[in-house]
Design a protein around this nucleic acid. Structure first.
Lengths: 133, 133, 133, 133
DNA sequence: GTGGTCTAGACCACC
DNA sequence: GTGGTCTAGACCACA
């Protein structure tokens, strides 16, 4: 997979790494069992520090998205049970939607935007896969 | 409107103030023309620093949500055109949805969650005033 | 509270910091609402690096034991819902008990040891408290 | 006995091997005099490195659980006197219990959990042999 | 003055 | 060669 860091957003570098991995998962560019680039390699590739990548990977591991393993590096985990703090997530979503709403976007437009995004998502592949890494 | 700050949230205090105002707008607890609490009063009420409240208000003004006026204080602005940086907003929304998707939430569940949130939103009243502050 | 780092155990430094805080909580030397030493101060006190302390605090925050806040530093959180991954914890406990068992410790002796430890624990104080920091 | 390695566990592979042997001993699936699988066989079976298995066995030998013999392989030793570093073990147990306690588990619940685990343990059979390996 | 992020470089544990 | 830990020092964001 290709990582593209859109620097200059509000998000920190490691947050962006975390987000990119999750997006890649949702879009099917990354599947359970796939390996992520070694920390050092990705760091070199992005010209950022090793520790910054490490922190991004650590965050993903905490959230259950990947496993970090000394032997085989970082691999995408099988999707687990709910886990996620749903309340915090919903509150965040609520704010995002409120932003659109107060900007004059109609319920229909917002819903369509959401649908359009969801339409591109791909079911998480539980089996093997040869996604490019 | 009542401001409630969650000290434990990941968002900074001024971000929370900003978010609460937008949510209040979406839920109809605040309408264009309404006045926001004076900076000093709110700061005292929340027992936080003046600067923090000011920063929150400043952010809202930059985004076009309110007008800051030394004489009459902060008042909610009329909704403007799509001013918002749509690309950044969509990208943020996309990540939020991808989080849910990769956690196993179905399109239907996600859509329902969105609908449920939108259902509670109230059209921004462009010709009223006097909402309790 | 006093931190005593028993170096040379298998645990890493930040793990030991994490453990000490949890023990302090169990023994009532630390209560919800209490402040932990600032990262830099503790680091200096223990003659270890700032980042090592930071990682320990971060771990505690992830586990819900404390809140990290730019304004007021690290404070002990109110006890939350279950949270903890019970399965992993039980497996760890099981191994610990199996070690004792296979060393010839009787059920009675093991139980007594556990009781003795539990006897010294103090209910988590939900109210204010003036525990020394 | 069957070895099952959890790649996602925090413990290293050789630690897991060591733990599984001790658990097998406690549960009576392994008894003094029994032979452990040959290093090569186990390594092949788990598809891990020879060194890793060897390190696990070495650890067990240092702790007095097994004897390593070039001719007859690894055999479970007779239980010895309290050899174990009791202080370290107790401290570890104390932390485990403190975790549960600070998560709100009551003395009764913790004790019951301990009892439930102990109930399944089987006295180490000092005069048997031939358990399936 | 507090924590948060990023960089840099070293050494270790595991495999 | 992989991730894990620790050190060191800089700069930023928030209050």
């Amino acid at each position: 997979m290709r990582f593209v860091l859109e620097i200059a957003e509000g998000d920190s570098l490691y947050q962006q790494i975390r987000n990119q991995v999750i997006l890649a998962l949702a879009y099917g560019n990354l599947s359970p069992g796939d390996g992520l680039p070694p920390i050092r390699a990705l760091a070199a590739d992005l010209s950022i520090n090793l520790h910054t990548v490490h922190k991004g990977y650590e965050m993903l591991e905490q959230e259950g998205y990947i496993h970090l393993n000394r032997r085989i590096g970082a691999v995408v985990a099988q999707p687990r049970s709910p886990g996620k703090d749903l309340g915090l997530w919903q509150q965040n979503l609520r704010i995002r939607l409120a932003e659109a709403w107060t900007q004059g976007m109609s319920r229909e437009t917002i819903t369509q935007t959401v649908q359009a995004i969801l339409a591109d998502f791909v079911p998480v592949d539980t089996g093997r896969s040869g996604a490019e890494v």
